[in-house]
Design a protein around this nucleic acid. Sequence first.
DNA 1: AAGCGTTGACTGACCAGTCAATCTATCCAC
DNA 2: GTGGATAGATTGACTGGTCAGTCAACGCTT
Lengths: 200, 200
Amino acid sequence: MPDRRRAILDAAVRVFARQGFHACRVSDIADEAGVAYGLLYHYFPSKEEVLNTLFLERWGVMLEMIREVDREPIPVREKLGTIASFILDSYRHDPDLMKVIIVEVTRAANSFGQTHLGQIREAYRLIGEIVTKAQQEGIFKAEIDAEFAAMTFYGAIEQVLTGWIFGLLPQGDEDLERAKQMVVETVCGGLECAPPPSAP
Amino acid sequence: MPDRRRAILDAAVRVFARQGFHACRVSDIADEAGVAYGLLYHYFPSKEEVLNTLFLERWGVMLEMIREVDREPIPVREKLGTIASFILDSYRHDPDLMKVIIVEVTRAANSFGQTHLGQIREAYRLIGEIVTKAQQEGIFKAEIDAEFAAMTFYGAIEQVLTGWIFGLLPQGDEDLERAKQMVVETVCGGLECAPPPSAP
DNA sequence: AAGCGTTGACTGACCAGTCAATCTATCCAC
DNA sequence: GTGGATAGATTGACTGGTCAGTCAACGCTT
């Protein structure tokens, strides 16, 4: 007794990634899952709800991970590094799912982006909090708005993912590793107070 | 004798911005333009072609502007500053058009993003060239991939625009001015070689 | 009267969602 | 163990509504 619900979700990821939410038919998902058309409506009330489920599942994991990282007693640079790693690794682990989330939700201002604005905003808020703390500790420049910095940080990561999704950037294992370092390096470099405590 | 073709394009911008390309009907555009349904097909072969026209018109202007900036004998920071200004001012001047271009084309990996990949890539290439030159002059760190830096730079700008589009960031005139400085400051700060030639 | 601009009713295709029928698993009575 | 009853899972043909694009007719200008 295979888990058909899971099969449908997994198939939807592949189909959405390949054709896009609007361009694909429900029957494409059912076919990909090797399941009858009507069964999708046994598990989900609509095509939209399939995408919502995929997004919320994954986004929830990410939010939880950011909260956890923030609790750790480690330097900002390391916190942001962990966050960048997590997101970029998510792409390595399941590029299709990340593509769907970014293309169909996170960057879809007219459809699902609106629906999930609260969730998206929460991610910015959490990252912004991390930045704010670093500013209070005098590690990050105080004159840069924390919310804005969070946006730049997350935006840079998402842009790298978009580069991969569009096939505009090479995406080997070591490219991914370099991307991690560069994102953190670039953003932290721009945010940190000019002279680090002093280096021997 | 009003220019109906222009009226249709302008109406399409408003309708696409409000409802999104997929969610709107051709009749919405015609109504908004105060024009009969069929007239749209007198001037454009399809709904898609209306969006393509809007995108290419604007994107062409931007590419030309980047090329011009690159020809000027000014420091990198100023070049990137001019580019950021141009894009952010474009938003101030016509937020609907920029929203449509970003949401429906630049970030739509499954539909028009694919169609216009060449144009999008060209923008990255041009900005990448500016970065490369700065690296050769020893102003920017050589170890950061130029293409990657271009992506981060443009990504940061687009993310600010997305923040405005989603209503996640305040967008008064002075917010816009600060955004300009912050984007350039953050990205250049992260890319420039650690010690600037020395400051008295 | 010729030709371009303009109109809007119509059509043909498409597809999300419904539903009645069929299947399978589980459990209980005997 | 066996029959059979009940509920949930599964099927796919069908429906109803939507909408992009067509086209024949009707201006308006020259």
